[in-house]
Amino acid sequence: MRELFDAGFLRRLEQLALVSRRIFQGRLQGERRSPRRGTGVEFADFRPYTQGDDFRRIDWNAYARLDDLYLRLFLEEEELAVYLLVDASASMDVGEPVRKFDHARRVLAALGYVALAGLERVQVAAVGRGPEGGGRVPPPPLPLRNRHRFATLLEHLGALRADGAVDLAPGVDAFLGRSRRRGLVLVASDLLTPDPLAPLGRLRAAGHEPFVLHVLAPEEVDPAPGGEHRLVDAETGLALDISMNAQAVRGYRRRLEALSSAVSGWCRRHGVGLLRTVSSEPFEETVLRSLRLAGALR
């Protein structure tokens, strides 16, 4: 916990929060259509009047000047449910110099901090084996609000362990079973699972808005050629002998590219945010990029 979110991390996070808050809010709240729009006090925008709108929201001053009916829109005051869903299978426990799992948790923590600062409702969830399944993934903790609870959020994230062979699909199903409120689901996973798009589709179908953080280790993106190797699966422990020649590396890259383009194509089609990140890159960069990407998308 301490080594994962050390003082330097927190300091950088503070700076990041200042830069990112506006974007985040714009992305997450300001343009959200809500049945309860207008109940807030902060002015957001004008909108032409359409039949059925509340008369009380008409800006009469504008009507007097422009001779057109406009509604004054105010920012929604309602809190947004933000789920930090991290893939806690053993496959995430890979990566040099930074494990994918650590990178994913740092990025999620940063996004969670921003969400907390925006007074959103943030909840940490993990795809993995819980204690009842012989694993070390704790049951999902209670949702948090307010930036002062950030320490608790870090505790929740730090308590997670990447462990065991878990598929994304059953983990997502379990998450859906627990989370009643619809909201933004930040899924951090390496998506190295037989059918990674199905669980994402299920999240969407359940009314959630997924945002996919595709986390890969540098050696997965660019495996070093040369040598005879025995590849050991981190989850299953199964081994595979291979001559890591240029041909094999080429074949692997082709496969990985196919996976990535399948995921990105799906996300594009369904308007789902996607960020592909390598665990070796600085998490601030990932966070800023992801926030900008998210903000630019809508």
């Binding site: 496959s91 995430m92 890979v94 994918k100 390496d190 190295l192 699972t193 280790a217 050696e219 997965e220 040598g227 005879e228 190797h229 025995r230 590849l231 050991v232 699966d233 981190a234 989850e235 299953t236 199964l238 081994a239 595979l240």
Partner: peptide, 8 residues
């Protein structure tokens, strides 16, 4: 040489 990978 053994090489641990996320997934085979």
């Amino acid at each position: 040489t053994d090489r641990r990978v996320s997934s085979l």
